[in-house]
């Protein structure tokens, strides 16, 4: 069964001819391909976030309409899970791992440094729309703690002094 694969979810899917209609069409196509719908709400939201980059109100309304369920139910699920976001993310999503292993190896300092370098707090997006800073709980690369994840790429054994350089790579991209 073709289900959305998480992982690249932080980046928008490649949309050849662009446009909102095309995005909705992609979502409709995905929903149509599912053998059962309402029970697949979470998979649908994953796919929608992949397509749209976030889950704004109109997308949630559309999904509610497609599945014939109350929009409140869709919103209830979106707001429950930390993976879903209603705000558009920046081009690059920076995640500081705040799992226990990273915590005891100084993740807080890394987080402060990233906040300083980007001039935003965790959960915010830079004004130029380039970076969104988030924190996540454990990517399971505890041997490399503290860990910084940018667009799915894991940077291990990060030191405060390296943060600027690492972020710099993405400023140029």
């Amino acid at each position: 069964m073709s289900q959305s694969e998480p992982g690249q979810m932080t980046q928008q899917a490649e949309i050849p001819d662009g446009g909102v209609n095309r995005q909705f069409a992609l979502l409709d196509e995905f929903v149509a391909s599912l053998p059962y719908k309402k029970e697949n709400l979470i998979a649908i939201l994953h796919r929608a976030q992949e397509i749209f980059g976030s889950l704004p109100e109109e997308v949630q309304m559309h999904i509610a309409y497609l599945l014939d369920i109350p929009a409140a139910k869709v919103y209830g699920v979106v707001s429950f899970y930390s993976f879903f976001t209603m705000k558009a993310r920046g081009r690059h999503v920076v995640n500081v791992c705040t799992g226990t292993a990273c915590f005891v190896r100084g993740a807080a300092k890394i987080q402060l440094e990233v906040e300083k370098q980007l001039g935003i707090k965790t959960g915010e997006t830079t004004e130029d729309g380039l970076f969104t800073l988030e924190s996540l709980r454990c990517v399971g690369a505890c041997g490399l703690a503290p860990v910084l994840v940018i667009d799915g790429k894991v940077y291990g054994k990060v030191e405060v002094g390296q943060v600027k350089e690492i972020l710099g790579e993405y400023r140029e991209k």
Partner: peptide, 10 residues
Amino acid sequence: IEIKYGAGAF
């Protein structure tokens, strides 16, 4: 067997 995804809730 079918795979179902979580969405970040402990």
